[in-house]
Nucleic acid binder design. Sequence first.
DNA 1: CGTTTTCTAAATCCATAGATTTAGAACAAT
DNA 2: ATTGTTCTAAATCTATGGATTTAGAAAACG
Lengths: 232, 232
Amino acid sequence: MREFKRKARVILIDDNADHLRGVKELITLESSFDVVGATTSANLGINLIKKHRPEIVLMDINMPEKDGLQAIQEIEKLNFGVKVIALSGYDDADLIFRAMKLGAKGYVLKTMASAQLIYAMDEVASGKIYLPSALTSRFFEYFQNSFKNEAETSSEENLLSYLTSREEEVLDLLTQGNNYKGIANKLFISETTVKTHVNNIFQKLQVNDRTQAVLYALNNGFANKRRAKLAI
Amino acid sequence: MREFKRKARVILIDDNADHLRGVKELITLESSFDVVGATTSANLGINLIKKHRPEIVLMDINMPEKDGLQAIQEIEKLNFGVKVIALSGYDDADLIFRAMKLGAKGYVLKTMASAQLIYAMDEVASGKIYLPSALTSRFFEYFQNSFKNEAETSSEENLLSYLTSREEEVLDLLTQGNNYKGIANKLFISETTVKTHVNNIFQKLQVNDRTQAVLYALNNGFANKRRAKLAI
DNA sequence: CGTTTTCTAAATCCATAGATTTAGAACAAT
DNA sequence: ATTGTTCTAAATCTATGGATTTAGAAAACG
């Protein structure tokens, strides 16, 4: 249990001074977290984080001055392993999505009961990710919608399936920005052979040049994982 | 409350006949759902769905014969508004991610208490998305990890920022698979002017040809939303 | 006002890309 | 055994792509 460990440190960042004070009091009185910093400025907050290296940061993301989302991104870039919980007044799907995408470990509405905030902090402190179920639902609607097109196009007849395995290899190298010579060298075959393969690829994908072939490949699920680094 | 509505219909698909029978009994006895179909075959299940148009489908995704994920995709393609809940023996992050990506409205482990399955069905039937919090956590770890690179590279110095607005237009057309002539026609400028722009783009992006320029653009946040359809 | 940037354009030249045809070898399928 | 597919390769030809230089007009900046 956590009583035996050192109290986890928390830094609060909220441009609303009243809310900041309220949350600070709440945490101090009703939880076993240690508030080591509280500020209304995102920039000051980041400095506090650098100084104190807290386990948890409660970050208001509805700040006008500096965008809270941007602040989350900067905190993540520090790579301190700080766990950021986004605090927001809105259950907007796009906000939730962007906050989670940037690495927030939780998203809590300001209107939620104080016990839920403490619970979220406990969960996040123990390494989990916490999203209230209503927000999880919102998130997934957004998430699934953003993948809808991709799913549809990927289920259409995919011309990529007509490629032979060697042609797939060649196309893979094309999607890394190689020219004929580069491909020939990498596959230990002659340049003219590569040309033959590439021409066959064009026919099968019904495109006119390598750029279109590469675009077709990327738009149709080719090389989804190994989002290739350019071979420049 | 749901008592006043017609009982929501459910179809069960699970290649394990024993488990299938157990779940059917459970739902019949302990919930207000109406099991209108149960089969061990994904293909038969899809036919049942076409016939009965159920509100809910419980789909085992650990089937050897036909992949359950593929079945989900096919069901979503029908566009019947069927709400699929994935049933799985594994809390594997990649499985969860793929199931949700394909449009599953819930993901429940077979090892979970039966009450939780009923709860999930209630939630999903009422239009929400249900993921147990432990799985939500798993999902987000995977999700955030898959966006990590993107966040990092997007915060590196982006050579795209050096492009003039005209060059951005030209690059945009390049990322749609246009050649010089196509770009010239679309921008009402001469082909040689396009060549000048394109050469300047190459210099600024430090690449050697159009394919590499397009790849750089796509990998660095250019045209993120309007995931361009090819101009073939 | 002068300077710089951007957009436009042409000319030239060489390199690469792409189309097309032909063909041998290996292998799988029936 | 024969047919079909895949992978290999070359030759040839034309089209497109890319590098480089030069330059005018317009707009932006200071």
